[in-house]
Design a protein around this nucleic acid. Structure first.
Length: 285
DNA sequence: ATGGCATATCCTATATGA
């Protein structure tokens, strides 16, 4: 089973790119972020014709998330992140697909920092950490997938120098991500590619795509039930090179759900310290 | 300190993104 996450940066403008990607890569589940559209503008019909059932939560102009399932209807579990009833931004959607709990999230960017937007980012992250703890303890197979807007370590960026003041690299942001991993989640791409520079985002400026000057900010975190079933993880970078592309590329995991469960469910404590440059512990594997 | 580019909407301008 292939589960993917893709920040489309505008579902209306990006529909042709999205459909081409779905057709070529055929993910079983796709989490989308930054729909930037009201609920009524979501292209359910086009996606159904492409073979996907949809669950979505839109918003005017900004944010917006969706979960697609090939040949199935995602079963909604919740459409808000608990912890702040006053938060009206569409950034979280949770559904069951094939018995797997899929959490699709779009974490706030947080720029400029410091400031209220950065405060909101950190508060949202704390709510995610709290909710993820419950998901972890539930024992269900869970994947947390989305645009986390965090560059976990300096290995996850082409060059941190010009981003040092950016919200995505702040120690507070990285500490939140590390604390989330410390619950036991497996960062799928980093786990399978411990020393590789893998990017999921290349901004539109300064020929960053042409220079492969990217960031890894879209992540898929696996629960203890799913981690032993991880067989492959990667980025469909070709999508970023298409005409009228989003600034993000789809990231994905492939799980072998038919494999017998391993006995001691790989309970790896988060191997990396918050500011660790090299992933020594993971490198030895 | 700013901009580079892209998307959205209250569109010869402004807010947001990362």
């Amino acid at each position: 089973m292939k589960i993917a996450t893709y920040n489309v940066n505008g579902i209306k403008s990006r529909l042709p790119n999205l459909l081409e990607w779905l057709e070529r890569e055929r993910p079983d589940v796709a989490c989308l972020q930054e729909l930037k559209a009201l609920d009524g503008a979501f292209p359910t019909d086009a996606l159904r014709e492409a073979g996907y059932g949809s669950l979505w939560k839109g918003q005017r102009s900004w944010n917006g998330v969706a979960i697609l399932a090939r040949g199935a209807a995602p079963l909604e579990i919740r459409r808000t992140l608990p912890g702040d009833a006053a938060d009206d931004q569409s950034r979280y959607l949770e559904a069951a697909v094939d018995g797997i709990v899929v959490a699709c999230l779009y974490l706030p960017n947080g720029n400029p920092q410091p400031g209220p937007k950065f405060d909101y980012k950190l508060a949202w992250f704390e709510r995610l950490i709290r909710h993820a703890k419950g998901l972890w303890k539930s024992g269900h197979p869970v994947v947390l997938a989305g645009d986390f807007n965090v560059v976990p370590t300096d290995l996850d960026i082409y060059n941190p120098r010009s981003w040092l003041k950016d919200a995505l690299l702040q120690p507070e942001s990285r500490d939140c991500y590390a604390r989330l991993l410390q619950q036991g989640w497996t960062d799928a791409i980093r786990h399978l590619h411990p020393d590789a520079a893998v990017f999921t985002f290349w901004d539109y400026f300064r020929k960053h795509w042409e220079r492969n000057a990217g960031l890894r900010i879209d992540h898929l975190l696996l629960s203890s039930e799913l981690a032993p079933r991880l067989v492959e993880a990667g980025v469909d970078a070709w999508v970023r090179g298409q005409p009228h592309a989003s600034d993000h590329a789809p990231s994905w995991v492939r799980l072998d759900l038919a494999a017998p469960p391993e006995k001691p469910a790989a309970k790896r404590p988060a191997a990396r310290k918050p500011a660790a440059r090299k992933t020594a512990a993971q490198g030895k594997k």
